[in-house]
Simulated scan of single mutants.
Amino acid sequence: MANLRDPVIGPVIRAEGLTKVYRSGPVEVQALRGVDFTAAAGEFVVILGPSGSGKSTFLNILGGLDTASAGRVWFRGLDLTALDDRGLTRYRRDHVGFVFQFYNLVPSLTALENVALVTEIARNPMPPAEALALVGLSARRDHFPAQLSGGEQQRVAIARAIAKRPELLFCDEPTGALDSATGIKVLEALTEVNRATGATTLVITHNAAIREIADRSLRFADGRIAEEVVNPVRKAPTEVSW
């Protein structure tokens, strides 16, 4: 198999016929219904849709946190659907950064130390201070989470996700717990990280206005991609009307 960090030809991530069914006794819930998807290197994609439409399930399968009931997913030449738990763990560790709505920082560690946790297990990490600088937090590196605002804590979480230099950055409602002004700062950090690192970035949100900062937006409904919109020009987060 080719080195998965060689220059990319074709999609970085690709899904075909992605289906996910959850079962609880006799009850079946079809979370995904045959989703096809591709994303190129460095692309910024916003994923929209109501709760229960399949957005998070889709992102979790692409990120190796969940497995599909049917269909296939490839990261470059690697068939993720053929991997066992150990293989998926290696894929997540080496290639994927995650940012969630809640920051999950270690309270007893400084911002710098929280980022450094990830670099200790990464193959080719960036210095933690460099990751914090990318999200505009150099001056807050020695502060503990309790000394940081919600937006600053989320930016630490972004720095932690990118410190291992992932090719894929998956964000599930990263501004969901923030007010609009703080959310814009977090989106600015994400767009800067996307530009500076070239990580293919997928962001789930309920805020339809955020689609304007992306290269492309997808709208999920009833487990399917119901709409896809390509933006000819990406707007800056400060231009988005919340």
Results as ranks from 00 to 15, higher is better:
151 G>Q: 02
74 W>R: 15
148 L>R: 03
144 F>W: 13
124 N>C: 14
121 I>K: 14
138 S>K: 10
89 T>D: 14
152 E>W: 03
76 R>A: 14
144 F>L: 15
146 A>R: 13
158 I>S: 03
155 R>C: 05
81 T>N: 11
91 Y>S: 08
107 P>A: 11
129 A>F: 00
75 F>I: 12
88 L>R: 05
150 G>C: 05
73 V>F: 05
89 T>Y: 06
101 Q>H: 01
89 T>V: 08
143 H>I: 00
155 R>D: 07
92 R>I: 06
113 E>W: 04
158 I>N: 02
131 A>L: 01
111 A>L: 05
141 R>L: 11
138 S>C: 06
108 S>R: 14
126 M>A: 14
124 N>K: 14
75 F>A: 11
136 G>P: 05
92 R>F: 04
88 L>G: 02
161 A>V: 02
74 W>Y: 15
111 A>N: 08
101 Q>V: 00
101 Q>E: 01
149 S>W: 03
96 V>R: 04
104 N>Y: 15
143 H>T: 01
124 N>V: 11
139 A>S: 12
147 Q>D: 14
104 N>I: 04
143 H>M: 02
95 H>E: 14
109 L>V: 04
102 F>H: 15
127 P>A: 06
105 L>I: 05
74 W>Q: 11
108 S>I: 15
136 G>V: 03
137 L>D: 00
78 L>I: 13
117 L>A: 12
82 A>F: 10
112 L>M: 12
120 E>W: 11
90 R>K: 13
145 P>C: 03
86 R>N: 12
120 E>I: 12
119 T>R: 07
158 I>D: 01
143 H>Y: 04
104 N>V: 06
136 G>C: 03
95 H>A: 13
121 I>W: 12
89 T>G: 09
132 L>A: 06
132 L>R: 00
151 G>W: 06
93 R>N: 04
131 A>G: 10
152 E>H: 09
144 F>K: 14
88 L>S: 01
129 A>G: 08
